[in-house]
């Protein structure tokens, strides 16, 4: 049996064809197998006519046609297209739910922790006014609001602030979106996205936000440090959860063909 050399023209041709047949499914796999069988037979014929291996491979390829010419005759599998669209929908759906939950959840947790955090800042003069700044002679800007409440309002709930009343609803919306995705996935062929697509961006966000928050704590513990820490740790948790579940997706979309 005449086999193509490891890096010979036929092998390179088949490698290129393999890449270009991505998304064609069974039709592409069959085309690739038949192309290999055909080219090997053609090379054998060429060798029988006295050509050396290199020339025989080049002639076989020339007669077979360029990869572009051949591949454009292989139909893209309808199932593959549908599977890709389902995968895309699934990715967008889960990402939307995760982002809503992260944003809203971070705001809610930050608000819950804001009480002790504010007391800590007041006790340690981290607002930069004066020690024991809620003691006399503190003069409230708004006499109707006590010192603690006023300083608590200075905290940023999230890195870019925001109205805290919306956070619970955003978080609930995120949970609802994710629950809806779980239900739809069970009753349809929606599929599970590649969790690495969630894990990487959330991991990067976690790195930046947590670093910023930690710097804030050790530097001056500004009023934004808590929100950055919470948002960063929440993002880290989301990233790890996605990473842990990455293998729990047996029906991942696979765009390529296998050889």
């Amino acid at each position: 049996m005449t086999a193509p050399t490891g890096d010979g023209p036929v092998e390179q041709y088949l490698d290129e064809m393999f890449d270009r047949l991505a998304g064609t499914g069974p039709a592409g796999r069959r085309m690739l197998a038949e192309a290999e069988s055909h080219l090997l037979a053609a090379v054998e014929d060429g060798r029988d006519r006295g050509l050396d291996a290199e020339a025989a491979e080049r002639e076989a390829i020339a007669r077979f046609g360029t990869v572009t010419t051949v591949v454009r005759h292989v139909p893209v599998a309808t199932g593959e297209v549908r599977q890709r669209l389902r995968h895309l929908l699934s990715v967008v759906w889960v990402a939307a739910g995760a982002v809503l939950l992260w944003w809203g959840g971070s705001g809610v947790i930050t608000w819950l922790l804001s009480g002790p955090w504010t007391r800590l800042l007041i006790a340690t003069d981290r607002f930069g006014a004066q020690p024991d700044m809620c003691e006399r002679p503190w003069v409230p800007l708004n006499p109707a609001v006590d010192c603690f409440t006023q300083y608590r309002e200075y905290l940023n709930l999230l890195p870019h602030g925001g109205d805290r009343d919306t956070y619970p609803w955003v978080a609930v919306g995120g949970v609802a979106v994710l629950v809806a995705w779980l239900i739809v996935r069970r009753v349809t062929a929606l599929g599970t996205p590649r969790m690495i697509l969630l894990s990487v961006p959330f991991g990067l966000a976690a790195l930046v936000l947590t670093t910023y928050g930690v710097l804030g704590v050790f530097h001056q513990a500004q009023n934004w440090a808590l929100s950055y820490l919470v948002a960063g740790l929440f993002a880290a948790g989301t990233s790890v959860a996605a990473l842990v579940n990455r293998n729990a997706a047996p029906d991942q979309a696979r765009g390529g063909i296998s050889r």
């Binding site: 085309m31 038949e34 192309a35 055909h38 053609a42 007669r63 077979f64 046609g65 360029t66 010419t69 051949v70 005759h73 292989v74 139909p75």
Partner: peptide, 9 residues
């Protein structure tokens, strides 16, 4: 004809 196009046919 490019021989490779016969297979899709």
């Amino acid at each position: 004809v490019p021989e490779g196009t016969v297979y899709p046919a």
